[in-house]
Design a binder for these strands. Structure first.
Lengths: 187, 187
DNA sequence: GTCTATAATTTGATAGAC
DNA sequence: GTCTATCAAATTATAGAC
């Protein structure tokens, strides 16, 4: 891989985001509001300051764009959680969903895509399942002990639902109340 | 109100669904798959066997249609739960979301709309909040005791998230595992 | 890599005949 | 209440110049 294409490798981190990344940033913001059918090439292009044909150059189809959106979201989400066997792991998972609510003021991308799962192109659905598998796996390691699968499922599903419900009712505190009880329930 | 327009009153229940109801039925099925931006007047009309202009006659705008969709969904959902102070109320709530998963094979309409809440017309968003308030109120009555608000929030949000996650992973049993633990957590 | 231009289709919505 | 016809705008996507 040449240096020109190696954004993300050791020598090329922290560069200003290139056009492709800015397209993904804009598309993610819109998809986390209105879902897969809630954003368009033209809207994304306008937000970045280019034409829709340029977006198609980087992502030929909407399935390509949305699939990469979900894959990048998953990578960042899992990476942002840190090590599942380090102290305070469960609290970090709660904080990650809490940041979506209070800092981003947005839904979890894959939570929203998951709600539309049967209306998504195949590749996007697969990427969404990848998010849930990765997050459940991380949570199971973070919890440890016995019955980790069902306990991880309760925590992750509960946090997704708490985020969704808190946003619907515009009551951010609801998330904290639910999260506290979920954590105690899976301890 | 004349009898001809009194569908739903004591004397006129159980009539074959009229066109307006069939439009709502088709629209609900589509909205529970793809959300607000995942269905169109033409698709709904085709499913019912009429033209899109006829759908507009019953529901002038998409906001009108989706608002009534959410309101009817809420009425039916709450009515289907029965009395919150009768025995087995919590299990009936769990069964209601379970039926969406296993019988309808669909998302909760207001759960999906809730995930898109910031991208919805005002009236639809208000109706979605009405669903969550009504369901949380019912759950709080069903649970009784102390701390009913937070316990009801944990149960309802948890069941919404369990439905969403089980559908995403195509693992219906996940819902049962999560629901069992949620019920114990809020007992 | 971005642009102009455009194709082909779909969208929400309206006018007016029957 | 339903239809035909239509509109203006938006949609995904492609061709080809620069």
């Amino acid at each position: 891989m040449s240096a020109a294409h190696a954004n993300g490798t050791a020598e090329n981190r922290r560069r200003p985001p290139d056009r492709r990344d800015r397209i993904l940033d804009a598309a993610e913001r819109m998809a986390r509001r209105g879902g897969y059918h809630g954003f368009s090439f033209r809207e994304v292009a306008a937000a970045v300051g280019v034409k829709s044909a340029s977006v198609h150059h980087h992502f030929p189809t909407k399935e390509d764009l949305a699939t990469e959106l979900a894959a990048r979201y998953t990578e960042r989400f899992i990476a942002g959680l840190g090590a599942p066997d380090a102290p305070g792991a469960v609290d970090r998972l709660v904080a990650a969903y809490r940041a979506a609510l209070r800092q981003d003021d947005q839904m979890c991308l894959c939570g929203l895509f998951g709600a539309e799962i049967d209306a998504l192109p195949i590749g996007v659905g697969d990427a969404v399942r990848g998010f849930f598998r990765a997050t459940l796996d991380w949570a199971a390691r973070a919890l440890g002990g016995t019955g980790t699968q069902a306990r991880a499922e309760t925590l992750v599903a509960g946090l997704e639902g708490a985020l969704l419900t808190a946003r619907s009712l515009r009551d951010a505190d609801l998330y904290d109340r639910v999260a506290e009880r979920l954590v105690r329930a899976v301890e």
